[in-house]
Design a binder for these strands. Structure first.
Lengths: 148, 148
DNA sequence: CCTTGTATTGAGAATCAGTCGCATCTTTCT
DNA sequence: AGAAAGATGCGACTGATTCTCAATACAAGG
């Protein structure tokens, strides 16, 4: 439990930065959410709970969390910067329905090995993988006739 | 040559819309660029060449091109809406270097088949695939020691 | 416990992308 | 040429993200 705090802490000191109250609260909020989020939503969440951390601080902290490998940019349907926390989560594929915008996730499985091989082929030091697939989910396929 | 014009033309008339001068010029500009682009860059390009098509028109046209299957949303490092034209291009993997931000592309190859299989597994009607991999490219790996 | 240098923060201004409403053109069809 | 429907440009507007800067908080040394 609270592994992510350690990770962040270590990352910060390695860079000569400090784990301050605002940073800690943002970290907690991020790992308290179990969905994708963006800066405004995070701000709302934090405000709801207790503190009034400024947008500026949130926008400053997210890149740090990303650099520390705790969160990653997620693919987005909208035009905002969307993140999700990944520490302790396996990499996955996002299946995005073009109709209802719902997002399902499945694990990478064997795809990862292949990507790894290709990475070696071009001498690329692979860090993160994001796979986004768009199409129509089964629910919408079924109700396709009604709408159109 | 100029296949994309036909495709767009047909798409438009199917929807009762017209292939106007601005739309045509945007289409040309899009297929004249051989990199990823966003609305502002497109605007700049168009301005440089000749016409003064408004941002509003560009923002209205891009979704049409997307719906026509001529371009697709690309994954982005920044916070803007980035597109690339795909008509006549095979699907590919984006290799993004976290250090120098350069983007390389490789074809999907066998990954596509696997995704297709997984799609069938969850009864998902696969349309588009975007794969983004982040890491460090060979150039940056080599010069890693110097900077740090 | 005080001092000092450095990192941080909040608030608000400033940007910038993307959207919208509307009066004015274009295109198409007759 | 005239009418109807679709398009466009302009400018206002919204909302996200960045920037600036003065005020704080913190760690280390005295």
């Amino acid at each position: 439990m609270e592994d992510q705090v350690q990770v962040f802490q270590e990352f910060l000191s390695r860079k000569g930065l400090k784990l301050t109250r605002p940073r800690r609260e943002i970290l907690d909020a991020v790992f308290g959410l179990h969905e994708h989020f963006d800066a405004p939503r995070l701000h709302q969440t934090l405000r709801g709970i207790k503190s009034d951390i400024s947008m500026a601080t949130i926008y400053r902290t997210l890149p740090l969390l990303e650099e520390a490998g705790l969160i990653q940019h997620s693919l987005r349907a909208s035009s905002r910067d969307v993140y999700e926390h990944i520490y302790g989560h396996p990499l996955h594929v996002h299946w995005i329905c073009s109709r209802c915008s719902k997002v399902q996730e499945t694990p990478l499985n064997s795809l990862q090995d292949q990507l790894q091989k290709e990475a070696e082929g071009i001498n690329f030091n692979l860090d993160e993988v994001n796979i986004q697939v768009r199409g129509i989910c089964w629910k919408c396929r079924n109700s396709e006739n009604e709408i159109q």
